[in-house]
């Protein structure tokens, strides 16, 4: 098994860091607004069945934010360009939370390089006609403890804690949060036009949702899935907004089965290896 590797690519003048592990059919993982922290077990789990590529969005991780980038459209076109540059075909595009918004924006533009789409507690879509309905909890205006409570089944294990973070981790977290607010401040975490173009997603789509998600409810997730032609909706038990972190083995296994990837190694092995790889993300 090839270890997690990190490289930096230049794509149309934008520099991006990419983490990569495994071989085979490409799985491109688009991270949430929290970046790639805690994502190593999922990447490791998938890497037994595929070549996993996890780029940082511009402005996240250590990837620079181009001054002209202001909209999620910029991130969608950037990642489409990156697929072109890397020559990746028939990919499994996986997007979690904010990354799921980007994945949908990519897929309504072009599925030419996408074979399967997997959305995990994806943001980005406005469904309700009631202007006052809150479909996505306000990550910026809620108390951090409340955000943690809504985000995790086990907030005490996963919520960020400055006393346990290195200086670099603190800086990356602050950059991620700043960039997330740039792209998602207003309209808050959605593109109001996205709903009407979801019919253009013409590849098999799996929508995974944390059963206990209180950032965006499972009910909302089910309705989002229903707006994508033929999409399959699947709840993940024991997870809230971040099933890829709290239940990486279950998520990897659902993705592998849905996309027809070669079988996964047992979850316990993947989790162990993932724990070792985690420090490098």
């Amino acid at each position: 098994m090839a270890p997690l590797s990190e490289s930096t690519v230049q794509c149309h003048g934008v520099s991006a860091e990419i983490f990569e592990q495994g071989s085979g059919r490409p799985v491109v993982f688009l991270h949430s607004g929290d970046g790639l922290v805690h994502c190593a077990p999922l990447i490791e789990g998938l890497s037994h069945s595929a070549r996993v590529l996890a780029p940082s969005h511009p402005g996240f991780g250590h990837t620079a934010l181009p001054s002209a980038f202001r909209y999620v459209d910029d991130l969608a076109y950037f990642h489409l360009d990156l697929l072109d540059q890397l020559g990746l075909d028939d990919i499994v595009l996986v997007g979690a939370s904010f990354g799921g918004w980007i994945a949908q924006e990519m897929a309504i533009r072009s599925t030419a390089r996408i074979g399967h789409l997997v959305l995990i507690d994806a943001l980005g879509v406005r469904l309700s006609a009631d202007e006052t309905a809150v479909e996505i909890a306000d990550l910026f205006a809620l108390h951090p403890d409340e955000v943690a409570r809504r985000s995790w089944v086990q907030p005490q294990r996963w919520a960020r804690n400055a006393t346990q973070m290195s200086d670099d981790e603190l800086l990356v977290a602050a950059r991620n949060r700043e960039s997330l607010s740039l792209f998602g401040w207003m309209p808050y975490m959605v593109n109001p036009l996205l709903r009407r173009w979801l019919h253009r997603i013409d590849v098999p789509t799996l929508v995974l949702w944390g059963e206990a998600d209180q950032i965006a409810s499972a009910e909302y997730g089910r309705a989002c899935a229903a707006a994508i032609p033929g999409a399959v909706f699947q709840l993940i038990a024991g997870a809230a907004h971040y099933p890829g972190v709290e239940q990486p083995a279950a998520v990897a296994s659902e993705i592998v089965r849905f996309a027809g990837l070669p079988a996964c190694v047992p979850a316990s092995t993947a989790a162990l290896a993932g724990a070792q790889a985690q420090a490098s993300l």
Partner: peptide, 25 residues
């Protein structure tokens, strides 16, 4: 003022936010 309103992301550059969080530990 509730703490989440005291430092909206981007109001202060990320490097100062990170430094402030470090110092507050």
């Amino acid at each position: 003022l509730a703490p989440q309103f005291n430092s909206p992301p981007g109001y202060t550059p990320a490097r100062f936010v990170a430094l402030d969080q470090r110092l507050r530990t």
